[in-house]
């Protein structure tokens, strides 16, 4: 069957990539818990990933919260449930929109930058130079980025959650004429710790995925500028898809009983 052969080849190639990414991830995790640690580089990457992504995440979550308030008010007014707007905004932001939107924005900004930087280092022999200078490229390049992603994404998402809820509040009070005090009361009345914690766990998972895929694609880039460009695209696309898949998996782990 000539049609089956190419399908089989694609499937085998897919399995090979999954295997390589898994080995890369395991190797990264082992290096994350064994010395030597480059604390200066971890801090630098935390600034790159967290601090410099803050404006993008803040803008995204602010407008997401504002739109969510408008949309939920418009929908809920059909069955006189307008008072649920604040609750819907805060639960949606903490559980879903905060982590997913921040994850996707950081994937575009940071995942691409990591892949481009490490990819350029690969094709210009800088990674080979690290080895000849008795430095493990995994510990020096990959681990600081992955640890920084793991640590900073939850912080970013927590800030994004607050800004998103503030966006809902601004629209709710100024545009939809909610009473300020009752909006705030409704915001916290049904909010549970698990809502926030699940979002922060998602953020840590997304931080791992974004930085891991950026490093993996950059580390294995080949063929000069074109290869680096391809690695950058692959990093953003693969981490975005994996974020959406991981989002479902984590949601099911937390909320399906």
């Amino acid at each position: 069957m000539p049609i089956l052969a190419p399908i089989g080849r694609i499937f085998l190639a897919f399995l090979a990539v999954v295997g390589r990414v898994t080995i890369f991830a395991v190797k990264t995790l082992v290096h994350c818990v064994t010395p030597r640690f480059y604390f200066r580089l971890i801090f630098k990457q935390m600034c790159e990933i967290g601090y410099y992504s803050l404006p993008v995440v803040a803008m995204t979550t602010l407008f997401a919260g504002m739109v969510l308030a408008l949309q939920s008010y418009s929908g809920f007014s059909r069955f006189s449930a307008e008072s649920a707007v604040a609750t819907v905004v805060v639960i949606s932001m903490t559980r879903e929109l905060g982590p997913v939107l921040a994850g996707l924005m950081v994937a575009g900004r940071v995942g691409a930058a990591i892949a481009a930087e490490i990819g350029t280092m690969r094709v210009t022999e800088q990674i080979d130079a690290l080895v000849t200078l008795s430095t493990n490229p995994f510990k020096y390049l990959v681990v600081p980025r992955v640890l920084a992603g793991l640590i900073t994404l939850p912080i970013l998402v927590f800030i994004g959650d607050i800004i998103g809820v503030m966006g809902g509040y601004i629209v709710g009070v100024n545009k939809l004429s909610f009473n300020s005090g009752s909006y705030i009361q409704n915001t916290f009345q049904y909010l549970e710790t698990l809502d926030v914690v699940s979002g922060l766990v998602k953020a840590a998972v997304f931080g791992f995925i974004i930085t891991l895929m950026g490093c993996y694609q950059g580390y294995h880039s080949r063929g000069g500028a074109q290869g680096v460009g391809q690695a950058t695209t692959n990093a953003v696309v693969s981490s975005s898809i994996l974020i959406l898949i991981a989002n479902y998996v984590v949601t099911e782990l937390f909320f399906v009983r």
């Binding site: 930087e117 350029t120 280092m121 210009t124 022999e125 800088q126 080979d128 130079a129 080895v131 000849t132 200078l133 008795s134």
Partner: peptide
């Protein structure tokens, strides 16, 4: 590696 030094074709200096 500790007792060797290497000059790469493109120098391979670390941009950062």
């Amino acid at each position: 590696q500790a007792k060797s030094g290497m000059l790469f074709q493109g120098a391979a200096l670390f941009d950062s």
